[in-house]
Design a binder for these strands. Sequence first.
DNA 1: CGTTGGCAACCAACCAGTTGGTTGTCAATC
DNA 2: GATTGACAACCAACTGGTTGGTTGCCAACG
Lengths: 198, 198
Amino acid sequence: MRNADRTENTRALLLRAARHEFAEHGIAGARVDRIAERAGVNKQRIYAHFGDKEQLFRHVVGHALDELSQAVTLTDDADPGEYVARIFDYHRTRPDLLRLFLWEALHYGDSPLPGEEERSRLYDAKVASLSEALGGRVPEAEVRRILLTLIGMAAWPQITPQMARLVLGESAAGTDQESLREHLVRFTRNAVTAPEHI
Amino acid sequence: MRNADRTENTRALLLRAARHEFAEHGIAGARVDRIAERAGVNKQRIYAHFGDKEQLFRHVVGHALDELSQAVTLTDDADPGEYVARIFDYHRTRPDLLRLFLWEALHYGDSPLPGEEERSRLYDAKVASLSEALGGRVPEAEVRRILLTLIGMAAWPQITPQMARLVLGESAAGTDQESLREHLVRFTRNAVTAPEHI
DNA sequence: CGTTGGCAACCAACCAGTTGGTTGTCAATC
DNA sequence: GATTGACAACCAACTGGTTGGTTGCCAACG
């Protein structure tokens, strides 16, 4: 293998291993040794490639964010209900990403996240799409609030699986994700197609 | 001060300090030394009273849970919109609790939480109240899903303040919590008073 | 042969949890 | 009202394992 390829390879291995580790344990709980071992790569390579633990975390989150924004777009279809369902599906099949974002949110608290401008533009596009989907009659500020709520609704059951279990009842939780999905679509449509939005 | 009172006092001091520390840094990020220092109590007292770090965390979360369930009840008013608003208000004024629960959720993942039965009964009561508030025509399974969604909606903006800032736009986020609250009430009423719920 | 990637061993700081000795408080007994 | 025993808390040093980060040497590539 050429040197350049080898480099690229170990970077990829490290990023993947780091993603698992960070998703599972968070920044403080993650162990650099474990990441290196999981990647089958020497620990020192982490520092050569990424600087330190936190910068590695940022790289991981950056990657994850790109992936999410590519996978779940709003422009394709005009139905907000279906949009919520797709976010829900995404988080259900790849719970790692959501955990990653939560660790990040908790860690950085109110202080600005790395790469905010980029993310900001990303949401602006979604706001525009949603505004159109709503028929263009809802003021932008309210469209933004609706978008925020939709994203939260879709993510919530995955964020707190334990609470989901408790609220939904022991039996249904694991098996009945399909009903939950349908509920979200229904709930969203009801909320959004109602007569008055101010 | 009597001995019994002194004990109670240091316990309370420790729990309060621990709550701050855990809310801020999570289980892995929290430092036992810092908790002791913050409480103005010797570190060794933590081990005498609570056993170890994680058990202390559980005590803290237990307290927080009691507090939340006492503060935000569903039985008082029949309007689900107002219920959501009250959850929202609670988390806005006391963000510590939500952070605590998130750290807990992330830490324990899918495995059962300490004290699940107790919490379960708590939610059962809320389900009953909500069912009544909805006119008693919605099947219980769907009521449970609605409850889950309502709680999530109310918590979400506080969970990810950074995302809220990005989605809502830099300017509005901090100042316009009132509009957000009204949006939640409106959104909930629209969703819930719609004709069909299956 | 210089540059670049890889590695094992290393290190100093950190951190949860412990120990042993000391001071102060309460309550019962004499 | 002095003595005694049982707690509760304080303090400071210590332990043993962990952890993020570093160094010096070797191998492969170009």
